[in-house]
Design a binder for these strands. Structure first.
Lengths: 126, 126
DNA sequence: GTAACCACTATACCAAAGTATACCGATATA
DNA sequence: TATATCGGTATACTTTGGTATAGTGGTTAC
């Protein structure tokens, strides 16, 4: 049980964490970058149906939150590389907990109840 | 580094977990219920600015996912009580990881960088 | 010369999420 | 008789998130 103060101290940081991972494409982008560094067009190709607009927007947000590092190489034409920033790996524990919970929850809901299935997700192409 | 198969096995359950906690009011509702069981109007009063429409909708989703238990008592007028379901407590580890990460992240962003502050949140009233 | 690649941006549009306001029937209170 | 409470629902609206489509300027390949 929590009191009022504990409750805010609980809701606000979780909201922060949730907001950072929110949006349709952040997870697929992080997933793709976990395979290694990639250029803009490589990301676009490995994430089915993403538009350059959304890719650009979501990458910017991830970069602002220091999870992703963007490097511009002075070639012609320019080369831009995206990769997980060192800080990005600090998310690992959270993501693994979410993955474990999500995995067991999906099984639970599928077997014990009317299935509430989230829509089919596109698989990130390598 | 992940390969394509690992990547889907990573994205899908995390998406599930995220979806379950998504929406503006799920966290405040869970927070309020962590103080103990509450009736509909009590929840409405303890969560500033929530409308009955949203409260009803989000409670229903939490109930479908078995995180919250709804009990109707045969009084006149009816009494309806909401509480954390036993299964709801299975979220604790995930939520705590998110809270810890969110807390350190807020500090980090505030001190090292242009502050990207999420909007002020209303505190849940007791 | 024209077509494609690179890393994007601009504009317009559409769908989902959330808000505002009013209301339900039954009961208790003034 | 009028007002408030209970646990919500109905309808209409606005705001946010995401999509679709086209185009930028400079370079290399056919």
């Amino acid at each position: 049980m929590l009191n009022k103060t504990e409750c805010s101290a609980f809701v606000i940081p979780i909201r922060d964490c949730l907001d950072i991972l929110s949006g349709k494409w952040k997870l697929p982008i992080l997933g793709a970058l976990m395979e290694g560094k990639k250029r803009f067009k490589e990301l676009e190709r490995s994430i089915p149906h993403i538009t350059p607009r959304m890719l650009s927007k979501e990458l910017r947000e991830l970069e602002i939150n220091q999870l992703v590092k963007r490097t511009v190489y002075d070639t012609v034409p320019v080369t831009v590389e995206y990769e997980m920033a060192p800080y990005g790996h600090s998310l690992k524990k959270v993501l693994m907990e979410m993955k474990d919970w999500g995995t067991q929850h999906r099984k639970r809901i599928m077997t014990t109840d009317t299935p509430i299935v989230t829509e089919e997700l596109d698989v990130v192409e390598v």
